[in-house]
Write a protein that binds this DNA or RNA. Structure first.
Lengths: 201, 201
DNA sequence: AAATTTCGATACGGTGTAGTTTCGCAACGC
DNA sequence: GCGTTGCGAAACTACACCGTATCGAAATTT
């Protein structure tokens, strides 16, 4: 018996292939990114795409949902950087980062699942909150709090509502715009400036 | 050969049953409202639920997507009433109407489809825009324009961004709140007031 | 070398659905 | 009454996928 560098016991026999594991998860992520819902995802298709036997999948995951959950867990939330000069600039950068992500298939993957299937797959929803929603909410919240402290924003702002308007506006544009309507790249600025300034004269 | 009151030619033989047609569409809507995605909907299940032979469905619709499209077409956009005293009140009423709808299964049906499957089913997306998005956008847009005309809002507001923040904020709360977090009923007011006032001191 | 475990491949029985066809009956115009 | 068409029910063929089992080869410990 042998222990690896982590101190874990290594059992005899051929070790599990990390390459296969990665290929399986990659295939899963790709297929979701291409628009497959969880229910359309078949183990057979994943195995074929990953160039792997079905056995290799079943040996590692008990069911589809767990595989998808693990696949999502590999998609790290890209850290939105807080380090700007003003709250306004930080907010613009934050929204710009989100806008940029939506073009990336990996995060379209997260989005698709979040929007559609989270209701039917509770574990998935849980993991999704953890990976995608909460980090961003936390970042945005601290941005707003800091702005309120420095006096750039009112001290009594409703942070949750502010988060909803900013974040919601981006989602609205990226998900519900007309099919071939182009997103103007200054969207983040327009949104932030309007939210900061308000609509009243 | 006979013509009905619309002047259309009535072919010989037994006429198609409107009752069956309604039952089919109702069953479809119900199942979607309960969380079925388009791909999970089976013609067989619809037929069984509607108390109808599969033949009766296939005779009318060539495929599932067309059936779903027709089913959605029966869900009228509930007219958001414009007749308030101030732009602020109108906006609050508008958001309140949307909030109320989200509790209603029929509109959860629309929402679910819109969020999830619209990318994969272009006809569906098209119809969804027509039924759900465009009427609301139009109503909200005219509300904002009117507010700008009366001077209650600035004359130079970015209407599209304003729509996105208001509408997006509601969607954000209704879709992405924590599972058992309750929606405070004054949400529409909080959103509208913040969007109108802005975040700056 | 022997034992053990995983690998990809393939095959298997079982289930669910698609879409078609057939049946006997019902509803309509002629 | 007759011809036509729609009706619900059932049977049918054809897949796709599930989850398991089996295979010979490969990788690793003992």
């Amino acid at each position: 018996m042998v222990t690896d560098e982590m101190g874990a016991v290594r059992t005899p026999g051929r070790p599990r292939s990390e390459k296969a594991e990665k290929a399986i998860i990659d295939a899963t992520v790709e297929m979701i990114a291409e628009g497959s819902g969880v229910s359309e995802l078949s183990i057979e298709a994943i195995a074929a795409r990953a160039g792997v036997g079905k056995t290799t999948i079943y040996r590692r995951w008990a069911n589809k949902e767990e595989l998808v959950v693990d696949a999502m867990a590999t998609l790290k939330a890209p850290i939105p950087e807080p380090g700007g000069v003003s709250a306004r600039d930080d907010l613009v950068s934050f929204l710009a980062a989100i806008l940029k992500e939506t073009g990336h298939p990996r995060h379209r993957c997260i989005m698709n699942l979040a929007m559609s299937e989270s209701e039917r797959f509770p574990h998935l929803l849980e993991r999704f909150r953890e990976i995608a929603i909460q980090p961003r909410q936390a970042a945005l919240r601290s941005l707003l709090r800091r702005g309120a402290q420095t006096g750039e924003l009112r001290a009594d702002i409703d942070v949750e509502v502010a988060m909803a308007t900013l974040n919601g506006a981006m989602v609205y544009f990226t998900k519900w715009r007309d099919k071939d309507e182009v997103l103007s790249p200054d969207l983040p600025e327009r949104i932030v400036d309007q939210v900061l300034t308000g609509l009243r004269p």
